[in-house]
């Protein structure tokens, strides 16, 4: 069992937003995540931090990697994991969500992981249940565990240079308007001292994004200049009402990451994508599949480790409450 004494100062009860965490919390989580990256630690059957505890995965939106990642993380820590996939059609009304919350609360879970299509749904749920709530993505608001796993993954990638993210120039590119990943990452990377840039067409950037502590660019050439890492985002066609861009062809031409655009960044720049990818729309396959550049598979690996650390930390915090 990894040494969790470092977590004594970890205070957040829930993980709803990156704003719930201070820099120390984040460092603690990332360090614990690093120990869980070691598969022998991860798969140690004697590691039963969550033995006797119940983790409920409550997914109102379809998910493959996030749900399975939480499930695996919970099981590897010895928890009883229940997956509740709730059809999208029965979602949406606040009252229904609160009814669900009351029902779940009666089952006395210890950890509740929720993904919901409405921004703020996890926060509403957190008010009504007595366990720790983890936001696994809410609408266009936040996806804090993704941001943490991205940071963990980046730290691993720059380990030779000290493993610190301070001062790195990181571009987040594409459909930022609809992206909860971007909103969490902007906050987290800012806390960790990175220089964050947002690149995308004006129609896919939130109004006043320049007030987020980032530099905003509308073309890849100037935006990617000198970047150490590039986070590509999925074009979220399912969240788009009306046309934000003329066509996938034009989008790829101006904003899709190919070798020519990658060359604008630093020579050894790293490429990330939270998945699932639209190959040929926001990223070309040869970059996505190039193990020297792409961290995309490593992001999935880091996902399980990071979520083990998060469950571990929140569970200890719950024990103290």
């Amino acid at each position: 069992m990894p040494n969790a004494r470092g977590l004594a100062g970890f205070n957040p009860r829930h993980l709803l937003s990156i704003a719930d965490l201070n820099r120390l919390d984040i460092e603690m989580l990332l360090e614990l995540g690093e120990t869980y990256l070691d598969l022998s630690v991860q798969k140690d059957s004697k590691n039963s931090v969550l033995a006797g505890k119940t983790l409920i995965n409550l997914f109102f939106e379809n998910s493959t990697r996030t749900e399975k990642s939480f499930e695996l993380a919970g099981r590897r820590l010895g928890a009883d994991v229940i997956n509740m996939a709730i059809a999208q059609s029965s979602v949406a009304k606040g009252e229904t969500l609160l009814d669900t919350a009351a029902t779940l609360n009666a089952m006395n879970p210890d950890l509740l992981v929720i993904r919901h299509g409405a921004s703020g749904a996890p926060a509403l749920l957190a008010q009504k249940v007595s366990c720790a709530v983890i936001n696994a993505g809410d609408g266009m608001h936040e996806h804090p565990t993704q941001a943490l796993l991205d940071a963990l993954c980046l730290r691993q990638a720059v380990q030779e240079d000290g493993g610190q993210l301070d001062g790195l120039r990181i571009a987040i590119c594409g459909d930022i308007l609809h992206s909860r990943v971007a909103r969490s990452n902007v906050q987290l990377l800012n806390i960790l001292g990175c220089e964050v840039r947002l690149i995308g067409p004006p129609t896919l950037l939130p109004a006043d994004a320049d007030r987020w502590g980032v530099d905003v660019f509308h073309d890849m050439k100037t935006g990617l200049e000198g970047c150490d890492a590039i986070m590509m985002l999925r074009l979220q066609l399912e969240r788009m009402g009306g046309t934000f861009i003329p066509s996938k062809r034009e989008y790829f031409h101006f904003y899709g990451l190919d070798r020519a655009k990658l060359a604008y960044a630093k020579p050894d720049a790293l490429v990330m994508h939270p998945g699932p990818m639209n190959r040929g729309v926001e990223i070309s396959s040869d970059i996505a599949d190039d193990p020297d550049i792409s961290l995309i598979t490593k992001q999935v690996e880091a996902g399980v480790a990071m979520r083990m650390a998060i469950l571990h930390a929140l569970s200890l915090r719950g024990d103290r409450a």
Binding site: P201, P202, T203, H218, D219, G242, T243, F244, I245, P246, F254
Partner: peptide, 15 residues
Amino acid sequence: TDTRLMRRIMAYSST
């Protein structure tokens, strides 16, 4: 006439 479409065209074209 679709004001939202016009807004997006204007925003997009400004690049």
